[in-house]
Design a protein around this nucleic acid. Sequence first.
DNA 1: GTAATTGCAAAAGATTTGCCCCATT
DNA 2: AATGGGGCAAATCTTTTGCAATTAC
Lengths: 132, 132
Amino acid sequence: MKKTRNTRQRGVILGILRESHEHPTAEMIYREARRALPNISLGTVYRNLNFLRDQGTVREIRPSEGGSSRFDGADTPHAHFHCAHCSALLDIPLPPGLENLRFEEEKRISAVSLVDLHVIGSCCGCAEGATH
Amino acid sequence: MKKTRNTRQRGVILGILRESHEHPTAEMIYREARRALPNISLGTVYRNLNFLRDQGTVREIRPSEGGSSRFDGADTPHAHFHCAHCSALLDIPLPPGLENLRFEEEKRISAVSLVDLHVIGSCCGCAEGATH
DNA sequence: GTAATTGCAAAAGATTTGCCCCATT
DNA sequence: AATGGGGCAAATCTTTTGCAATTAC
């Protein structure tokens, strides 16, 4: 197995993700990381996000509304709510019964590694009254 | 409200989507549509897919693995299984209990318009034996 | 010392858009 | 005839990649 290094860049990126609750994009992480490491490049941010995602440390969320991927550094299972109006992305609890989905009866599926639940709708800040 | 026209292009695109079970990309739909309309352009395919998606007629699926969006012309609720190895995208039944999720207790959510469940794993064609 | 990782910039990929013409209503 | 929609090509946006220099181990 390939050896990995603990670079300052990787640490800063993971730290940002761990502290943020807003599911930042690579660009937002980049801007934040530049405060600690003014020379960090966007390519490095992307490379590390891909690395952390492949490692299972963070989750990449590709919003159904389009636009950039958003990243989630939380380590407990949860679902996501997307506001279709303001593109806020909120963590919501996983509905009961979804923690242990089984797909034995589904002959085309051999193994399940991840279950992603996305709820799309309108957040309270964007309710009826608001301009759409 | 803006009046919409039934163009040959829009009809062909929707027809392809309705008949396909493989969740084609815009590019695949474009190639297929060219058989009926040799002059259709990729831009037109994208414009119509966006239109049909905004109208709620088709669903756009942004694969967690990355790459192009895939489109789903089915009209009954279902979940999706993504094979992480061959990028097959299969319709699977919505697990019981997910048809009528309620989010009353979630104060930040005002309305829900769509629930998307994505199961990521390995399909049977890509099981253990296969080259990864 | 060595190989993983970085910064930079260019490239690639996917989707959108402007403009002018055509076709549906 | 009016105008929504199409074709084409350029533009935009997001993400990836090649390469030489750097740095963690």
